[in-house]
């Protein structure tokens, strides 16, 4: 799937400012990546290249770090972030089946975003609501005691 990267003049200015602040600061690569993600929401190749140039490291190094840490997104995030908990309690209570159902519904794998940019699917670790297992969050709103047949009603609320 490919997404078009849009860079507004304001965003560009903000990132340039970050580079100025971090210039010459040792070990500032991670910081630059975090700030860039704050500005753009994710790290497309165009931004990785700018970070690489600014921090004087190969772009492959930036990419290696971005794909190593879960905190970095290399694809744009959808309007709604769907997190399905695969922690032990939720998994035992059937969250794996629910994840499969959501994958079928949205036609994406965890870590990806639907082409209409509406949903980003994430399989998460335990989010601490084991009493409500299995749970799913959509933009922070918790849906607990889930059964596969609940999904139609829930997703209808978000227009899918």
């Amino acid at each position: 799937m490919s997404y078009q990267f849009i860079d507004t003049p304001e965003q560009k200015k903000k990132l340039d400012k970050v580079f100025v602040e971090l210039k010459g600061v040792p070990g500032s690569l991670m910081k630059a990546m975090q700030k860039a993600q704050d500005i753009y929401g994710y790290l497309p190749i165009e931004i990785m290249q700018r970070i690489a140039t600014a921090c004087n490291v190969p772009v492959e190094e930036v990419y290696g770090i971005a794909t190593f840490y879960a905190q970095f997104n290399i694809e744009p995030m959808g309007k709604y972030k769907v997190g399905i908990c695969l922690g032990t309690a939720c998994y035992v209570k059937g969250s794996g089946v629910i994840l499969d159902k959501i994958k079928e519904r949205l036609h994406i794998e965890p870590g990806h975003t639907t082409e209409d940019m509406k949903f980003t699917l994430e399989a998460t670790r335990c989010i601490g609501c084991c009493g409500l297992a299995p749970v799913m969050t959509i933009n922070g709103e918790v849906h607990g005691n889930l059964k596969p047949e609940d999904l139609d009603t829930i997703f209808a609320k978000y227009g899918a």
Partner: peptide
């Protein structure tokens, strides 16, 4: 080239 992704999914390759 470099090492991309993590753990069992670690793969040697190029950017994106």
């Amino acid at each position: 080239i470099g090492a991309n992704n993590r753990g069992f999914k670690t793969e040697i390759g190029s950017v994106f």
